[in-house]
């Protein structure tokens, strides 16, 4: 007996579905399950060593009243804005420089991207020594040019900018590489026309280079923003969130709740809120990027 066409199509599809199953199982196990579990835990009061109890949205209302958590959101935004803006400006400038032809360009470009290859924890340990207000090399360098010493990461007022300095050193090369890639892909015709029309270098940058390179720059901004938002290792190694709570970002706060105080329910609620923040931020940036695409 001949089978109906629809059942044949189903049989063919079901044959392929088997190939999807392993990937589906992995996605369910490593993405979906942890997420559902975290959501469930955020509705529970559970501290390791004590029994768990369902508390509904109590963890979230607690967070809304927790001054320390709210402060950590402000510090995360402050850190992220600085850690994105400064490397983007410096990265674009350095990309423009490395886009020019000059002797030893390849060698210098190699040197420039070296920081990006270093392990964040190792970088943080080295910077910790350099930041020491009495023994560190940074204050010695300041003294050579007649500037007064700074307390760097050892004072609440300067700790975030000092931590951003580490991030700038570490990640400006990434922005430079992305923008440099974009610059290399630009068409040459608009520049030739502009040159014939007598446009100045600044006019060419403002009216041609920048708008054309903007989609690439937006990719760099999205990557850097997500990276800056989730920075943990360098901050934890250098300051552990201190002095006081002056550099306690959401990640550091989350780490303390989960792995120092073992408040898993509370920490899960922080994860949910943080995830929502990252999603909103990413959607906004993606929306902006869509608007900057070449048409």
């Amino acid at each position: 007996m001949q089978r109906a066409p629809s059942s044949r199509a189903y049989a063919r599809r079901s044959k392929y579905i088997r190939f999807i199953l392993p990937a589906l199982a992995v996605v369910l196990a490593v993405i979906v399950f942890p997420w559902v579990f975290t959501l469930w835990m955020s509705l529970n009061d559970w501290q390791i060593g004590r029994p768990r109890s369902f508390v509904g949205l109590q963890n979230f209302t607690g967070l809304a009243r927790d001054e320390r958590f709210l402060g950590s959101i402000g510090r995360t935004i402050y850190y992220t804005v600085l850690a994105v803006a400064v490397p983007v400006v410096l990265g674009v400038l350095s990309a423009l420089v490395f886009h020019q032809r000059f002797p030893l360009r390849g060698f210098l470009r190699g040197i420039f991207i070296l920081p990006m290859m270093a392990t964040p924890v190792a970088v943080a340990l080295v910077w910790t020594m350099m930041f020491h207000p009495q023994m560190g090399v940074l204050n010695y360098l300041l003294s050579l040019v007649g500037l007064p010493p700074s307390l760097w990461v050892y004072a609440p007022e300067t700790v975030i900018p000092a931590l951003v300095l580490v991030d700038v050193w570490h990640w400006t090369p990434l922005i430079m590489l992305i923008v440099l890639g974009g610059l290399s892909a630009l068409p040459t015709e608009p520049f030739e026309s502009a040159r014939i029309d007598g446009a100045s270098p600044w006019q060419m940058f403002r009216a041609i280079t920048f708008p054309l390179v903007l989609p690439f720059l937006m990719v760099a901004v999205i990557i850097r923003t997500i990276d800056a938002l989730k920075t943990f290792d360098t901050i934890f190694v250098i300051t552990q969130g201190g002095p006081g709570t002056a550099s306690e970002t959401i990640n550091i706060y989350l780490y303390l709740q989960a792995f120092a105080f073992y408040k898993m329910g509370h920490a899960s609620a922080v994860v949910v809120v943080f995830f929502a923040l990252i999603v909103v931020c990413s959607l906004l940036l993606l929306h902006v990027r869509q608007k900057t695409l070449w048409t």
Binding site: H132, P133, Q134, M135, P149, L151, W152, V153, Y154, A155, P156, V159, T239, Q240, G242, P243, G244
Partner: peptide, 16 residues
Amino acid sequence: APPGVSGFNWNECQTL
């Protein structure tokens, strides 16, 4: 204590 001591853990103290 030296300036910046509010950020000192044992390792900074030891160095000094």
